[in-house]
Amino acid sequence: MFEPEFDLISRCLKREVDAEYELYHRFASEMFGICMRYAGNEMEAEDILQNGFIRLFCNLHQFRFEGTFNRWVQLVFVNTAINYYRSNLKFNLEVELTDDQADETMEDALSILSTKELLAMIQALPPGYRTIFNMFVIENYEHKEIAKLLGISEKTSKSQLHRAKNRLRLMLKDIER
């Protein structure tokens, strides 16, 4: 059974390495999953994971036991991932002229894809599309929150999501062929 979070966090605040190890192992797999979605490849995901844990351990005082610890940890890693690509996040407002409607063949292609293949599709997206797609679709951020976190307008966030999905549709059409 897990050690109560309060005790574990208190021991981490005292910089006990075994407590840090326990906390690391409790969250590493889940957070590495998040990092893999935001990163372009596994090496970058490892960098983000390490940076995220350094931020986490150095900012444990910030956690006030007001929400769930798990959600707070997720936010730290999503923020770290955003920062990792901050200088590469380029957003432009041109609208791609692709059909927005889902067709049946695309849904068939979607249904047979494994998580590993879906991950490869996300990682193939440009950092800007990938970040917004992850934040909106998987982390359930609203466009308003995304806009605030990335320093962009809500309109840009919506347009980038639209473009990201169009890019994924094109990839699916390639897979169908």
Binding site: F32, A45, L49, V137
Partner: peptide, 12 residues
């Protein structure tokens, strides 16, 4: 994508 990654984990 939402359903596939809702509990996605990978051992670093």
């Amino acid at each position: 994508f939402r359903s596939s990654f809702s509990d996605y984990e990978k051992e670093p």
